[in-house]
Design a protein around this nucleic acid. Structure first.
Lengths: 187, 187
DNA sequence: GTCTATAGTAAGATAGAC
DNA sequence: GTCTATCTTACTATAGAC
């Protein structure tokens, strides 16, 4: 194993992720990404030969892993559906820093035309999240179609609450959305 | 009154709006905007001396007027709350082209850091929409706090459903969201 | 692995003819 | 009001020293 880098991969990806989520993909210049990481541009290109697109892809992959190991894992854990939904909400609160960070699903899907380089990965991630929520709602007694629809609705609301929170400059909409997500829908 | 331009202002703004909503603010180059409008870059700058920022601002103002005269007007029209919500949903369906166009509220708030040049206008527009929905829900019998919360929730869901529709490449989430918005919430 | 320095390119914006 | 041509700047990306 080689000597460790001056800045660890995990921390580097975290800094890059924050910049992408704060400013969007196109608006995030490599200079800004380098500055956020505390490196020079050439150092970033050394670690990401694929350039900015690879930086975003690696950030997205890291987010996918984190969401799988935390948000989706919470939904698949032991416990009542109510408890599992609460676990999911807590993990989402961490992921979005209490509503202060945008979602990569939004950011990376916005700055391109019909089809961007991340479309497939984004779709897979979103479907995984929806499926995991739907499965939990089924365990709570909902029928399959109903559970799927409610899961889609909740993911929509989650994404949208981040937009509303950003525009209105208050995290209240995001927090209220998380609270609603903890409850099993009445129908 | 001077001789009319070769391309009318309304149509021009419509083309620019579509480009911004399809690709985002930063990703929409002036060259692409000009191409969409069927003009050269210099012609665009003649009409918008403030450059790309003014183009986006004028597009946003036009959207604000359209939403006020259609979506919000539907909410303030005569009829039962249920009828007014249905009128709003129909207008929103037109505005978003059945879920195929992103929202300027998302696009213009994403590509900047904490504060962008459109923050104030975006916030005002979103608050107007939330207030108009809340007032209709109050007319339907909800208490003030409850109506406000439900209105925020619905706007969140609307924004989010556009993201989910874009990522999953199906307009179903948007359409289902509109259908839910037509109903008066049970509580 | 990180740096300074620099290509090469595309962006936003302007000048001036018609 | 629209155009062609151009300016200036900022961007992505690379080369090569340490």
């Amino acid at each position: 194993m080689a000597r460790p880098a001056l800045i660890e991969d995990d921390e580097l990806l975290s800094k890059l992720s924050q910049t992408f989520r704060e400013t969007g993909y196109e608006a995030a210049s490599v200079a800004a990404l380098a500055s956020a990481a505390g490196l020079q541009k050439a150092s970033l290109y050394h670690r990401f030969p694929g350039g900015k697109e690879q930086m975003a892809r690696d950030v997205l992959t890291a987010a996918e892993i984190w969401l799988t190991e935390n948000v989706i894992a919470a939904l698949k854990a032991d416990g009542t559906p109510r408890q599992r939904l609460a676990g999911m909400a807590d993990a989402l609160n961490v992921f979005y820093s209490g509503g202060k960070l945008s979602c990569l699903l939004n950011v990376l899907s916005t700055d391109f035309g019909k089809v961007g380089p991340f479309t497939e990965q984004l779709r897979g991630l979103m479907q995984s999240l929806i499926s995991a929520i739907a499965a939990t709602l089924e365990d709570a007694g909902l029928e399959s179609d109903e559970a799927q629809a409610k899961a889609e609705q909740r993911v929509s609301e989650l994404q949208g609450s981040l937009i509303v929170s950003r525009v209105l400059e208050t995290t209240a909409p995001f927090e209220q959305c998380l609270n609603r997500m903890k409850e099993v829908p009445c129908g």
